[in-house]
Design a protein around this nucleic acid. Structure first.
Lengths: 313, 313
DNA sequence: ACCTTCAGTTAAGTTATACTTAATCGAACA
DNA sequence: TGTTCGATTAAGTATAACTTAACTGAAGGT
């Protein structure tokens, strides 16, 4: 059986026709006349030796052979489009699109952005603050920052600093709650965005690691960490803050972490991009800038003591 | 950014060149002159606005853009080839290639084959007795018979009769082992091909379901069920036989299942083919024939009593 | 029943693409 | 130093792809 491929333009015509289930619409998509498309399909059917469409009154439907071919054709042309877009994006060293969760965007990226823009005025930055699964090719994404455990198969993945949590509050609150025990009097804010962690990194886990009776949070709940931290900044209460999200506020005195003891989450933010793309100029620049920015606050992180997790029975 | 695809023949030329890492070999593969191929690559690079290959002394290597495009191009053209082959195979109603495991091939298909050939002399049958993962398009497989739990995503999947196991032996042995307890004196053959089942369907599980002390098999082990059953037929001992593999020997008196109690495995043989292919003439004929053949021995299977699995603590 | 519209087809002619041949280039290898 | 190998270029040709324009046949409206 001769397995060599038929003319590719005919296959593309078939793909469009099968997707639209209409020759006319397919012709429109490909910017050709219906006549040309009809001819292409006919030629493809001649190559195959069997019809691919059944011509009905004023519609077409796929034959068995057509059904066998259509899904693969669709997927194949989508893949070609994706690859082509990726290749096109490769030569663009001017723009950089980054996607990150809302918390990281608000608490890490946003406060430092002007710094990056200053260092690399030639790079046009775009942001997409969403947590939904990313498709680098489809959504024109260059870099993704994601929090969790990994691994990240098929991607270039650079784990950033390890994330821990520790109670953070306004400086003026610190004297009111001089000890961890005194937090029983405080409004303890709940950040549900870390609820997926296993082992957990919530108030109960932190107090257990501190060796005190469990702190039971009674304050408001937030589904996004940045909202929880905004509540802290507004003086509402005390929250468990993740390293990346609070370190700048700690460095600049807007928040304090008075107990000096932090609980590891095991999870990290990772810098993700398509494999091979990590060498593109603007991506490498962004990556190095992030690492330098993290380094700037490393001394603060190192001043904290990492708590041991008690062994669970 | 104009995302429309470049000329497809150029993309195919690029794919071949990227796979061979040589324009000359790519040209050979596509049955064109090196000049034509060189021109195609050049035109593709013009469309992209950047080189895809770096021309070295007497070799070529991919640029970043080329690296971004090559894997997708390769996968896409493989997919098109697969789809095209599937469409070609659709119109072939004469031949039928079936793959099944060695046990099913030896103990179910082989003894019944002449029957199918008799009913459908026009269909040319081919067999491939292997358990390795099948690729319908790549290996020209039409139908696969597989044992296990499913599901079978993306395939037409028809579960056949439920598989149970029960001790089988030569008729003349049955009087020597009149009760399940008496099997302690017998050579109990081990069939490792069902070791993957969960819950298990081995001697221990069967005796437990029978409510007797565990039977500990001491006989030979076989990795394939047909070899275990051949050992039974040779008078070596007693084995736990799967329904599909022993029912014909039971029906024709070569083996007996004297205790009349069978243990369900929860797993089944399934009739698998690419979605949509189940309506092809020869595939439907084969499917219906299998169902009829199974029906012929259904009365025997129904004469057995299904054991309850004891609830595990 | 009539005309109109719509979706696809067919035929003829044109344009653009893909290909070949043949000559050229440059580096590696003997 | 000449030879060979792999890629390139130029010129010319074949053919694939497309357009225009006329046609078919069924649906739908009045």
């Amino acid at each position: 059986m001769a397995t060599s491929l038929p003319p590719l333009t005919a296959l593309r015509a078939f793909d469009a026709a099968a997707r639209h289930m209409s020759f006319a619409k397919a012709a429109e998509e490909l910017n050709v006349t219906p006549a040309a498309l009809s001819f292409q399909i006919k030629s493809l059917e001649e190559h195959l030796g069997a019809p691919l469409f059944r011509r009905l009154n004023r519609a077409v439907e796929l034959t068995d052979a057509g059904h066998a071919l259509a899904p693969d054709a669709k997927a194949a042309f989508e893949m070609l489009t994706n690859g082509w877009r990726a290749a096109q994006r490769m030569q663009d060293h001017q723009s950089l699109t980054v996607t990150a969760g809302p918390a990281f965007t608000a608490k890490w990226l946003a406060p430092r952005l002007f710094q990056f823009a200053h260092e690399h005025p030639e790079i046009e930055l775009r942001f997409s603050a969403t947590l939904r699964a990313m498709d680098f090719a489809r959504d024109d994404i260059d870099v993704a920052i994601r929090f969790g455990y990994g691994p990240d198969p098929g991607l270039y993945s650079l784990p950033l600093a390890e994330e821990w949590v520790t109670p953070v509050m306004l400086p003026e609150m610190a004297e009111r709650y001089p000890t961890p025990e005194s937090l029983r009097e405080a409004v303890l804010i709940i950040d549900d965005s870390v609820a997926f962690l296993d082992p957990p990194a919530d108030w109960e886990a932190w107090s257990e690691a501190m060796g005190i009776a469990p702190l039971v949070p009674t304050g408001p709940r937030f589904s996004q960490a940045d909202h929880a931290l905004d509540a802290v900044l507004a003086g509402t209460g005390v929250a468990l803050g993740r390293r990346a999200l609070v370190i700048k506020d700690l460095a600049e005195g807007r928040l304090v972490a008075p107990y000096g003891k932090v609980l590891s989450t095991g999870a990290r933010f990772r810098f993700l991009c398509p494999e091979g793309a990590e060498t593109r100029l603007q991506i490498e620049a962004f990556k190095n800038w992030m690492l330098r920015e993290i380094d700037k606050t490393a001394h603060i992180a190192e001043s904290f003591e990492m708590l041991e997790r008690p062994i669970k029975k």
